[in-house]
Design a protein around this nucleic acid. Sequence first.
DNA 1: CGTTCTATTGAGGGAAGTCAACAGTGGTGG
DNA 2: CCACCACTGTTGACTTCCCTCAATAGAACG
Lengths: 243, 243
Amino acid sequence: MVPAPGAALQPFVNRLASRSVLTEEEQRALLGLGGRLKNVASHIDFVCEGQRVDHASLVVSGLVGRFGQNRDGVRQITCLHIPGDMADLPSVVVPKACWGLAALTDTTILEISHSDLRRVAAEHPGLAEAFLRDCAADGSILAAWVVNIGRRGAVARLAHLFCEMAVRCERAGQGHKRCFDLPLTQSDLGDATGLTAVHVNRTLRELRSRTLISTQAAKVIIYDWERLVTTGGFDDAFMLFEA
Amino acid sequence: MVPAPGAALQPFVNRLASRSVLTEEEQRALLGLGGRLKNVASHIDFVCEGQRVDHASLVVSGLVGRFGQNRDGVRQITCLHIPGDMADLPSVVVPKACWGLAALTDTTILEISHSDLRRVAAEHPGLAEAFLRDCAADGSILAAWVVNIGRRGAVARLAHLFCEMAVRCERAGQGHKRCFDLPLTQSDLGDATGLTAVHVNRTLRELRSRTLISTQAAKVIIYDWERLVTTGGFDDAFMLFEA
DNA sequence: CGTTCTATTGAGGGAAGTCAACAGTGGTGG
DNA sequence: CCACCACTGTTGACTTCCCTCAATAGAACG
């Protein structure tokens, strides 16, 4: 494929390096990956359930939601992907998507072919392990979402989500923990937390009235990190940051 | 370690083989794994959050729940593991558990050391890929649980869980799709679905009154599979069975 | 300057939670 | 053998959290 600009791949290297130790050589191999850049407009699905894909989608800029749907077509976002995340790394070994991917704001994707990913993994066992660890981290975050949606009320649920995204954005070099971009509509927030848009609105008002956060123009500002952590029952261990 | 009886490992081989193609040699390598058998009584935790483990836990018999907790200590089961499942395969690359494992009935575990698993994965790239695919399958099931808990009412939620476990048990050779063991208390069912035990009780009554299922003595009997599938909005694609 | 999407608010209803009581079951030990 | 206890299942009454429907206002966009 077309060689991709290193600028597009560096955040992915950083993401893997935040959980696995990568040698210089392994990093170079990743940065040498080719791919196809694709722009996706806000609220457009670019992978649909049941679709066969031959590439993985690396988020270069913007925000991506992986989602499932119930029989009525009501969506549930299961995972949010920020720049540097490979939105469907598992697709490399499971080429038939059983999920959808939607751009939640104007987004740029770098499509990397499965065969290229398999090749670098085969040539560099350290990368294969890093991919497995990345997959494990995704699973761990999913489990945390199950707990969040299953066992927390609306206020704690949103607080927990904001804590998670704050830590992830900061780690990814996308703003500060207390002030970062999260271009989600209230309807999207509802899809991510298992709430309705109306109830998200009321719950945000509650969070604002407690002077915990404010959300304006796709930006989240956290006024009291410690209290937000307590409110959401947040513990960052599940994100598996080590290195 | 002590060589494990092949009978304990064969279900694990079968589980991997249900999603990946394994050569004879790879299967032999798996069956040659050693381990330590451990009995765990019903409702005893055998892995706790934050604990460092040097082995993975293969379920030989019984039923295991992987769970998280909110700040109040209320549990949410995030995944159920039946015989043949490796309850914490991800722990191989993430040795510090950020989840708990509990036996939900009297259970036998085969503890397999991480180093042995790493060794067979390094010697047989096909197994490394099978592990990754297994990890992806777990993630896919977790995503389905997020959707289930986030976007379905109590009746559909339980119906979906029963459908999932029916298919998984049948695949694992543990009974028939329409009649299989699921030794969960109503309280456990609540922990798995994000409901309270009381509401599980009422919802089971509703399912019984619709002559969809009955639950007696740790056994689930499904009277009308098609209608249960419809009720739960169930689609088995997310379990990633292929081979 | 309409159109469309998003945010906001109110009113009312319904699904699920909480609290409490009691029955059935199995186990344990006197 | 039976009394006792702990756990599980069942049901009722009441409460609460969240959903649904609806209306309106603001913002973005052509």
